[in-house]
């Protein structure tokens, strides 16, 4: 279990912000921090991993104190067992893929894990390549594999998929879920993508101005459980156009674009880019073998 109780004054673009939050993450959970940029999500991750020092508070992980301002305890990042995947991947440009992973080995650690991780991440054929020659999705896989070399119990993912195209994102989401289960991790993700959050996480914390303003199970959090409709998806509005007396709304769900008919009174409330829930009764769709 991770127990965070943090206070920190952050200098942000829009002036100062007082971060003050309490978070409890159960062992083995996949948790997402959600919220506008500048809400304190990345700072929270950095404080957990020891890269940023809180002004006051405590960090306890599995019964061990990592930080306690009253008792003057502050473990260095080197002493905290955290795998951190940075938004820019932070691959070492002077090393090839295999060397990037090997660098992460602890002193005396068995090297066989490198081969296992390269294979699991399907990076075998790329192991001699330098990071600059890799695509975004490949870099992401290297960063993730590298974060797992030390077999951390906690995996921190700071918007790991935001720079990737949709197809790669969907693929890597599956991969993240696999990794989370296979390595029995407690995973903390920062993400803005509602579909991604619902797909991946058990629990969501919404941050605003350095505080947790809402928390809940992922599906409840975004109101996806708020109707009896069982045939439901979340997506983003791509297009709204009028046809005869109706409006046709195109919604991007995963990598499919679906169309939903709406009345004028509904269409007026929507704009392009809105995140929406699309639902129908389980009785209505037809199902066919393909």
């Amino acid at each position: 279990m991770i127990n965070l109780n943090l206070k920190k004054t952050l200098g942000s673009a829009g002036g100062k912000m007082d971060l003050d939050l309490q978070l409890i993450v159960e062992k083995g959970q996949f948790v997402t921090l959600f919220g506008e940029s500048g809400a304190g999500k990345t700072s929270t991750l950095r404080m957990l991993s020891g890269l940023l020092k809180p002004d006051s508070g405590t960090i306890e992980v599995g019964g061990t104190t990592w930080f306690d301002s009253c008792k003057n305890i502050d473990l260095k990042p080197q002493q905290r067992k955290v795998g951190y995947v940075f938004q820019d991947y932070a691959l070492f440009p002077n090393m090839n893929v295999r060397q990037n992973l090997e660098y992460a080995l602890r002193k005396g650690q068995d090297k066989t894990i490198i081969g296992e991780l390269l294979q699991f991440a399907e990076l075998g054929p790329l192991e001699q390549r330098k990071p600059e020659t890799l695509s975004g999705g490949q870099k992401q896989r290297v960063a993730l594999a590298r974060a797992l070399v030390q077999r951390p119990e906690i995996l921190i993912l700071d918007e790991p998929l935001s720079a990737l195209d949709l197809k790669m994102r969907i693929k890597l989401q599956e991969y993240l879920l696999q990794v989370h289960k296979k390595f029995k991790l407690t995973t903390i993700l920062v993400s803005h993508d509602i579909g991604e959050i619902v797909k991946l996480s058990d629990k969501v914390f919404e941050l605003q101005n350095g505080r947790v303003i809402k928390k809940g199970a992922a599906a409840d959090f975004f109101g996806l459980n708020k109707t009896s409709a069982k045939f439901r998806f979340s997506g983003e509005i791509l297009k709204i156009h009028r046809e005869d007396v109706l409006y046709v709304i195109s919604v991007l769900i995963g990598n499919d674009i679906i169309k939903v008919v709406a009345d004028r009174t509904e269409a007026d409330e929507f704009k392009i880019g809105d995140q929406v829930l699309v639902a129908s009764k389980a009785f209505n769709p037809i199902i066919q073998k393909i």
Binding site: K226, T227, S228, A229, A279, K281, F283, N284
Partner: peptide, 8 residues
């Protein structure tokens, strides 16, 4: 009746 969705 199969068209009616209930929302709590």
């Amino acid at each position: 009746m199969n068209e009616i969705i209930l929302a709590p």
